[in-house]
């Protein structure tokens, strides 16, 4: 096990990096979810003009890699004169990027409810607002929860990209240790294990939610 000695020296630094990764992911998931819900609502209930704006936004975001957006935010933000700390700049990019994917998840949740649910609520004389509040949204959110969780796991993995634009988190921390110890295989493998623990926990939770959703039907 002598080969893994660099990992024993560096593990605390890696775990601190993992803390930063989790913080960054959590900080991005909240605004991404809010924007995602708004986009989904705009697409389902909005008029033609609103819908086409949302569709154009989704087309742009889904066609451009996250790394391109991150890199150019890093170069462009100083030029525009907006003075944002790098951490919040990154969180902003993640929020806008993942909002597009979240909106698809929530939209699918709303649209996959059977037509009968809408008709039943209406025939009971519910107002539009009451119907959405107590019939549609609770069920739609339940249906959307498993893919939502797997999207969150995806976002955790994507935070590794911020190391390319120079922010410090788990991947950057492992690169720094590699520069000192010259043991890339062991250290990056260690980082992979840490990512795996975070993402696999989320994946298991998603699978648990999926089983519960299936049982409910």
């Amino acid at each position: 096990m002598k080969e893994f000695a660099p990992l024993l020296h560096g593990y605390w630094y890696l775990l601190r990096g993992a803390g930063m990764t989790v913080l960054m992911a959590a900080g991005s998931i909240v605004p991404a979810t809010v924007c995602g819900v708004l986009l989904a609502l705009a697409q389902v209930f909005g008029n033609q003009a609103v819908r086409s704006i949302v569709v154009a936004y989704l087309f742009l975001i889904r066609g451009i890699p996250l790394l391109v957006l991150l890199t150019f935010t890093y170069y462009l933000l100083p030029l525009t004169g907006i003075d944002l700390p790098p951490f919040w700049g990154v969180v902003m990019v993640f929020a806008f990027y993942y909002a597009a994917f979240m909106s698809e998840v929530f939209r699918a949740g709303i649209l996959s409810l059977p037509r009968a649910q809408w008709d039943a609520a209406r025939s009971l004389g519910m107002t539009q607002r009451l119907m959405l509040q107590i019939v549609i949204f609770p069920q739609a959110l339940r249906l959307a929860s498993p893919p939502f969780v797997s999207l969150c796991a995806n976002l955790v993995k994507a935070t590794s990209l911020v190391s390319i634009v120079g922010l410090w988190e788990l991947t950057m921390a492992s690169r720094e240790i590699v520069e000192r110890t010259l043991a890339p295989f062991q250290i990056f493998l260690g980082a992979a294990v840490v990512y795996f623990c975070i993402c696999y926990t989320l994946a298991l939770y998603g699978r648990y939610l999926e089983r519960r959703v299936l049982q409910g039907h």
Binding site: A153, A158, S160, I164, P184, F185, A192, Y195, Y200, A203
Partner: peptide
């Protein structure tokens, strides 16, 4: 599926 592509690239490019 549960580890980042970037880390996999680093393992292969620098580690191998």
């Amino acid at each position: 599926r549960n580890t980042p592509l970037l880390i996999q690239m680093y393992i292969i490019y620098f580690g191998f």
